[in-house]
Simulated assay, not measured.
Amino acid sequence: MIADVINSTARRVPTWAVYIVALIPAPVLLYMAQTGGLGREPIRALEHELGEIALQLVIAGLCISPLRRFAGVNLLKFRRAVGLLAFIYVVLHLLVWAVLDVQTLDRVIADIIKRPYITIGMAAFVLMVPLAVTSNNKSVRWLGAAWRRLHLLTYPIAILSAVHFIWLSKGFQLEPLVYLTVILGLLALRVPALVKKVAA
């Protein structure tokens, strides 16, 4: 079976390899921005690309449980890495926006307050911080069952991130809507399991 092949391969792949491969786009995009490979507005393009990779990683993290439940594909060993990689790309996305695009702290604060899509994006980032901080074995042991409840924040983070993408896109753009649809679909798959937990 395909699932068995994937599981067997996944068991042999070390987690550090996932970090290395997933982080390759960051220096590549930075190089392209410096050499004209990202068009006439390289900073905006770099900001967009980093943010989109972060959203894709958030979605990848949401796929891991359904893949195990419905397809028998077990990628749980990579879930923490995927979550941390999503956070890293969000931080890079924010740094490009704040340092290279906006450039001043006053303007950063003003944009967060006045621009709804930035407000939503920052809300998603704030929710990601405790997840990143507690993504270690010590926190899992210390928090116990509360750790799982805390990491349910992944769900609103995913929705806020998709809405952020939709709102910042100019005009009607199909791509951000596809991301939101995929996220809502992945979350819908979790509803029966959540209902059972509440009922129990």
Results as ranks from 00 to 15, higher is better:
G185V: 10
V198K: 04
W167H: 02
I159G: 10
Q173V: 11
I24D: 06
R148S: 15
Y89T: 07
V129E: 09
I64K: 07
L30R: 04
F70I: 06
R11M: 11
I109T: 12
I59S: 06
A86I: 09
M32K: 07
V182P: 05
T134N: 08
G185R: 13
A193S: 14
R69E: 09
A17D: 02
P116R: 02
S161K: 02
A188L: 15
L29Y: 02
V108P: 00
F78N: 11
G185K: 12
N7Q: 11
L152V: 07
I109H: 08
H164S: 03
V21R: 01
A10D: 03
L46W: 03
K77D: 09
P116D: 02
L153S: 14
M1P: 10
L180I: 12
L150N: 07
R115C: 00
V108T: 03
P130N: 05
P130T: 09
S8Q: 13
T154S: 15
G144Q: 14
G72W: 08
V28Q: 00
V28G: 01
Y179H: 14
G171D: 03
A199V: 04
L85P: 00
W16N: 08
I88H: 05
M32D: 02
L189G: 15
L160M: 14
R107H: 13
R115D: 01
A60E: 02
S139P: 01
K197G: 00
A132N: 03
